[in-house]
C-alpha cells in the first residue's frame, strides 16, 4: 500500500555496477549514474502474493522435487529468520523465492557444466511468504561450493540465492546467503563486490544450535532487511503494526 514513501536507497551499501574482478560486470554495467526521482505510486505499490499461491511442499526443498519415498541427498538444514525493513519492523506477506546448487555444488540447469552429479531427488527451488511478524522458514540441504569461469581458479562459497518482494516494487531485491565459518567467503569475487565487511557479514547466516532439531537437522538464522518507508504524520501507532 502507498502508506508512506521509501527512504532513499543507500547505494554505498550495494555493490557498484562495475566490479572488474567479477568479469561479466565489465560489459553489463551501465556507465552512467542512475537518475533519481522521488517514488510515485508506480514504485510504492507492488504485486501482492497470497498464501494461496503456495503448495504444501514449496518451502521444503528436501522433498519438493523428490520421488515418492525419497529425499534430497546432503546435510539437512532449515533456514529461518525475519524479513525486516530499515525501521526494524517485520515485513508481512513478503514472497521469498530461493534457489541453490545441490550438496555436490551442481545446479539443475541446461547451462550448468560442473562435473559433480545431479541428485535425482533435488530440484533446487523453493518459496515461502513471510508471516505477520516477517518470519519465514524453509527446509533444504546445504549446497556445495562450486567452481566457475571467471578467469582464474574461482570458487563460489556455499550459498543460497534469495529473491524478495516487499510491499512496494522499489523494495525489489535479489541477494545471496552465505554460511558462517566458510573459508571460501572472503576469496569470492562476487562476495567481494559488496563494498563493506559489515555488508558481507549481514549476508552470512549464523548456525543456530538453539533451534536445531535433534537427530534431524541443523538450523541457520538469516534475517533480511528491505528498504523502509517514511511514516506519514497520521500514522503514529506504536511498534507492532
Amino acid at each position: 500500500m502507498g502508506d508512506g514513501t521509501f527512504f532513499a536507497r543507500d547505494r554505498g551499501r550495494h555493490p557498484p555496477a562495475l566490479t572488474p574482478d567479477y568479469r561479466t560486470s565489465v560489459t553489463r554495467a551501465p556507465a552512467r549514474a542512475p537518475i533519481s526521482f522521488p517514488p510515485s505510486l508506480s514504485e510504492e505499490t507492488g504485486p501482492v502474493f497470497g498464501h494461496d499461491l503456495l503448495g504444501p511442499l514449496d518451502a521444503d526443498l528436501i522433498r519438493n522435487f523428490a520421488r515418492p519415498g525419497h529425499s534430497a541427498i546432503g546435510p539437512r538444514i532449515f533456514v529461518h529468520g525475519r524479513v525486516l525493513d530499515e525501521t526494524g519492523r517485520g515485513v508481512p506477506g513478503a514472497l521469498i523465492e530461493v534457489w541453490q546448487a545441490n550438496a555436490g555444488g551442481r545446479y539443475r540447469h541446461k547451462k550448468e557444466g560442473y562435473l559433480a552429479p545431479l541428485d535425482p531427488d533435488f530440484g533446487g527451488c523453493g518459496r515461502t511468504i513471510s508471516g505477520a511478524d516477517g518470519s519465514y522458514a524453509f527446509r533444504t540441504v546445504q549446497p556445495g561450493p562450486y567452481p566457475w569461469p571467471n578467469g582464474g581458479n574461482d570458487w563460489r562459497p556455499a550459498h543460497i540465492h534469495f529473491s524478495i518482494f516487499g510491499s512496494g516494487f522499489a523494495q525489489r531485491l535479489i541477494t545471496q546467503m552465505y554460511f558462517e565459518g566458510d573459508p571460501m567467503i572472503p576469496l569470492c569475487p562476487i562476495v567481494r563486490t559488496v563494498p563493506t565487511a559489515e555488508g558481507i557479514d549481514s549476508l552470512t547466516a549464523r548456525l543456530d544450535m538453539a533451534n536445531t532439531l535433534p537427530m534431524d537437522m541443523r538450523a541457520y538464522r538469516f534475517d533480511l532487511v528491505l528498504r523502509g518507508r517514511r511514516q506519514t504524520l497520521f500514522e503514529t501507532r506504536p511498534e507492532g503494526g
Binding site: 567479477y22 525501521t87 547451462k111 533446487g124 541477494t175 549476508l203 532487511v225
Partner: peptide, 21 residues
C-alpha cells in the same frame, strides 16, 4: 521514524536465476 537497520546488500542473480524464478 528514522532508519535503524541497513538494507541487505544486493548480489547478482547469476546465470541460474531461472531455477528459482
Amino acid at each position: 521514524r528514522d532508519p535503524m537497520l541497513k538494507e541487505s546488500p544486493s548480489q547478482t542473480a547469476g546465470p541460474y536465476v531461472h531455477i528459482g524464478c
